[in-house]
Amino acid sequence: MSQARNAILGRLRHRRDGALTAPTSDFSVVSNKQWSDEEKIDLFQQKIESVHAEVHRVTQDNWLETLKTLVQAKGLSDLLVPQKAAVGQAIRADWSETLPELRSYDQPVTEWKAELFSGIDGAVTDVRAAIAETGSLVLWPDQDQPRLMSLVPPIHFAILDAHQLKNTFYEVIVSEGWASAGMPTNALLISGPSKTADIEQTLAYGVHGPKELIVLIRQ
């Protein structure tokens, strides 16, 4: 269809009303938003809780205990955990048989699609960053923590370190140099569990993705 391509680009290039001048953009309204570390945690928590996520403030020492308590309370029978990421290794290093069985996403999805779709109760992932302004988690899924890990199981546990909190999405993109570093296959913002309001504006959770999103903030 290079014919269509050339025709379309040709029309765009030879505008009847002549070439356009590009205006400049003043980003100050988004770039000047800044909060203190404490405020960022509060704001993040307030925002993500307002969209039905569950937040627990924990420490580097007790987060795993909190996670264990939560998975038991939720009655999970298995839990998908990364193999290489530090959170996964920490979990695997200190788990017991009375807790839900730990599972690994260690084969292509096609090999175990049916099981992943209906046999896994929950998943744990770390995050790359988080955003205070909107209460969002930033994930760059990879081989160790694939894309469907944070999407298909009904409960998603996300482990966030407080120092990973940024003010805004804009700040994340700019300060981490996303554009120049090159983007991953898939980058994600997650703000709460899956939801819909398509039936008469009534909110319902877990329509396609997780019904519950539980965030542990390690301070």
């Binding site: 969209v51 302004e133 969002s136 983007m183 994600l188 913002l189 703000s191 569990p193």
Partner: peptide, 13 residues
Amino acid sequence: QHITTYFNMISSP
């Protein structure tokens, strides 16, 4: 909504 649940950015297969 201050943001939607998912913002999904795809850059390759």
